[in-house]
Amino acid sequence: MTSDPNPLPYTDTKPVGASDFYMAINATFRFIHRRFGMEGLRQYWTDLGARYFSPVSAKWRAGGSSAIAAHWRAFFAAEPGAEVEVQESADCVVVEVKTCPAIKHLRDNQREIIPAFCQHCYFINEAIAAPAGFTARVTGGNGSCRQTFHPGDARVPAQDLNNIKEATSC
């Protein structure tokens, strides 16, 4: 299989994104949580994963684990301040987020982070992964975490949201 020259679904002219946009992402979560509650916020994340990110699902479905690993390598290379290792094995893809660029930037700028911030990674990842025949799990959070992607038929425990830490501002 030849590697995808551009694993990301959307491209930009600048090599990394503008980190101040993390403030808008955090503010968007807070707004939706205030208006629609936790279930509404989770629905937003699921819809975002299933619809906006549907081109990602298509790439993962076509390219399997290699496409998942390539996606996250390219993704975090475009996120300013990210420190991440991506490992691909026969069983799964593991994304070790040593420094979450969003949490770091929000803290550096003294922003109040919505406590459920880190849950978005699970709900969006799962909504992208499921149509591609994979399932996602997240443990940790609040600045560093471990995200795994298993084949959909793998016998892995269901996601326990208690394994995702609440985000704090310091």
């Binding site: 959307y10 994104g17 993390y22 992402i25 208006r35 629609f36 969003a102």
Partner: peptide
């Protein structure tokens, strides 16, 4: 993770999501 590299893409998508849930006034409030 929701990133900043394609922020404008999911930001624009969010306007439509909010419009669908709560109409134009909700988008203005956002």
């Amino acid at each position: 993770m929701l990133g900043c590299y394609d922020f404008c893409g999911h930001y624009e998508w969010t306007f439509a999501w909010l419009d669908d849930k709560g109409g134009h006034d909700l988008v203005r409030e956002y």
